[in-house]
């Protein structure tokens, strides 16, 4: 039997557990932290995530993945929350599908270190079909960004 996720906002945590089960997110060891409605995404350090071993710096692909995942999951949560307000039916875990990326641009501001990396998204526009999202990523200091991203997404 498929377990249904209710519309209670506390159950966003349950939604996040489902999303955490996506193989690529498990591969990256992605962790979610929800404070109120604010989502912070974290990638814990892992020796396999290094790009240049001489520095050593986080691989650009890991940084880009963190930013893109943060944007998508933030959009997904906002839509699930809206869905409940619209009095739609609860969704089953199987129905949780992340939005599709149309385009995503990453700016690398400084080298990523082999320590915890965090990201938060800001949804600038979410229509019926398209959404535009900005993401910031940092390590020790929230005000010292090591990467930023902008993306356009198709809401499916």
């Amino acid at each position: 039997m498929t377990q249904l996720i209710t519309e209670d906002s506390n159950d966003q945590l349950l939604n996040l557990r489902v999303i955490e089960g996506i193989p690529y997110l498990r591969f990256l060891g992605i962790r979610f932290d929800l404070t109120g409605e604010d989502l912070t995404v974290r990638i814990p350090p892992n020796k396999h995530f290094i790009g240049n071993p001489d520095i050593p710096a986080l691989h650009g692909g890991v940084t880009a993945s963190l930013l893109e995942i943060t944007a998508k999951v933030d959009l997904c949560l906002k839509r699930l929350a809206l869905g409940s307000k619209d009095d739609r039916k609860p969704v089953s875990p199987k129905e949780i599908v992340l939005p599709k990326t149309i385009s995503f641009s990453v700016d690398y501001l400084r080298g990523g270190k082999p320590s915890d990396a965090y990201a938060q998204a800001k949804i600038n526009r979410m229509g019926r079909r398209y959404a535009s999202v900005q993401v910031e990523a940092w390590q020790e200091d929230r005000t010292r960004l090591f990467a930023q991203g902008t993306g356009h997404f198709l809401l499916v």
Partner: peptide, 24 residues
């Protein structure tokens, strides 16, 4: 690779893995 799937329902790999390949 099953490890880099982004959509378990379809088996499509995650865009982040494509981005990592592009960057490299």
């Amino acid at each position: 690779d099953l490890l880099i799937i982004g959509n378990p329902a379809t088996g499509v790999i995650h865009g982040g893995a494509v981005t990592a390949l592009m960057d490299t």
